[in-house]
Design a protein around this nucleic acid. Sequence first.
DNA 1: TCCTTGTTTATAATTATTCTAAAGAAGATT
DNA 2: AATCTTCTTTAGAATAATTATAAACAAGGA
Lengths: 136, 136
Amino acid sequence: MTSKQEFIEKLRNSSLRPTKQRINICEVLFNRDKTFHFTINDLFNLVKDETGEKVSLATVYNTVHAFHKKGYLKEIPINSNQTYFDTNVTDHHHFFDVKEEKLIDLKNEDVGPIEIQKSIPGKKIKSVEVLVKLED
Amino acid sequence: MTSKQEFIEKLRNSSLRPTKQRINICEVLFNRDKTFHFTINDLFNLVKDETGEKVSLATVYNTVHAFHKKGYLKEIPINSNQTYFDTNVTDHHHFFDVKEEKLIDLKNEDVGPIEIQKSIPGKKIKSVEVLVKLED
DNA sequence: TCCTTGTTTATAATTATTCTAAAGAAGATT
DNA sequence: AATCTTCTTTAGAATAATTATAAACAAGGA
Ligand SMILES: [Mn+2]
Ligand SMILES: [Mn+2]
Ligand SMILES: [Zn+2]
Ligand SMILES: [Zn+2]
């Protein structure tokens, strides 16, 4: 449970002005028990529902991109009409329940270490992500 | 090198009428030495360039979806503004060169077997895909 | 040849995302 | 506190990938 004051400091330390909107978004995103997987639209609705204050859609986009750039959010590679983000920014893998359109974290020990044996000259590995699609 | 006649048979066997447009698209997609990774727009342009006959964008979409549904194309999960498809429909993994926006196949032996230790009640695993992002 | 059904196509509709530019708020400077 | 600068929010417009529509057309069967 992070206090509003702590969010304000964190934003300032990231050279992001602590606006009412950003603080509300922080509370929705980061005051959760579990990893939170969401689309922009999910977040837009949750901010309204959970804080009672409406934030414009443009601001949700702006803020998510700002947080993503600062490394506070991760983008999850799946094919969907909407982009998914994740509050768990560590290297980790996912289940994707295709029917429910829901992401579930996999612990690294549930997947095991992955050694990539091939390399491309002049390129280095930035990330290795496993996506496990689930069906009924 | 598959002949036009063979494409016609293959289409018929899939209860897809062998139209001029579909045959042209088949030749662009499947008469290649290597696995072919593409977006709809790539394909749209290549059909025009390689066959000299223009096919409407709608038909490219329709055909790709039809082939995908029949299992002749695979959709690759990456976040991009365009959807990527793959003529290699076997289970396999990818490099994604973020700068060049290009996919490269990984052989299964370059990644090794992946054992998923976790399961979700009532769900079964449909696919396991590794995406390795590359940077300079 | 006629008939039915599937296909192509131009075009419009939809939808997620980004852009624009004006109004507002934050922080710094006096 | 008043002023100034820079950043942020916002409504709305623009963009761009994809999907839907519906009329013309082509394939295959009778
Ligand atoms: Mn982003
Ligand atoms: Mn598809
Ligand atoms: Zn996650
Ligand atoms: Zn591939």
